[in-house]
């Protein structure tokens, strides 16, 4: 990643996590790790977000919420699954109420493993997501130009 063209805003939603990854996502925005220096802001509004970070697996009640949030975000957008539960279901995979990872509901671009995912790996995941976002943005602009 050479430079950032835009200041990407991220939206965090807790699918059905244990809170461990959620507080690590928040810790990324605080002074020790400080992703805000890259212009990344944790927003609460899906209509203004570029990156959706989902922690925890998907259960039957949060499924529709995640779908709704994803559909409210403007294109282009990327999804980061934070923590092993969001990737595959993790330790909760055998629970009766868990459907599985986030990719059973919406398309996921970056998988961040770990239980709980450490802030370093979350930041690494966000940096990877930014590259994907840039590519998607170019493809989106080309499609617009072609009149599709």
């Amino acid at each position: 990643m050479a430079k950032l063209a835009k200041s990407p805003w991220l939206l965090h939603y807790d699918g059905s996590s244990c809170n461990g990854c959620d507080i690590e996502v928040l810790a990324c925005t605080t002074p020790k790790y400080d992703v805000e220096r890259f212009g990344i802001i944790n927003t609460g509004d899906p209509f203004q977000a570029d990156i959706l970070m989902v922690t925890g697996g998907v259960n039957h009640q949060s499924e529709n919420v995640i779908k709704q949030i994803y559909s409210q975000m403007p294109d282009p957008k990327v999804v980061v699954a934070v923590g092993i539960c969001a990737c595959t279901g993790g330790v909760f995979k055998e629970c009766y109420n868990i459907k599985g990872g986030v990719d059973t509901v919406i398309p996921v671009d970056v998988y961040v493993p770990g239980c709980a995912a450490r802030p370093e790996s979350i930041i690494d995941g966000v940096v990877k997501a930014l590259e994907i976002l840039e590519k998607k943005r170019e493809a989106y602009a080309a499609r617009k130009k072609a009149g599709a």
Binding site: S16, S17, G57, N59, Q61, F92, C95, I98
Partner: peptide, 14 residues
């Protein structure tokens, strides 16, 4: 409530 219910108490049986 129920948005993050996983069913961990049941997992103790397995």
């Amino acid at each position: 409530i129920g948005f993050i219910h996983r069913g961990l108490e049941k997992l103790v049986e397995t």
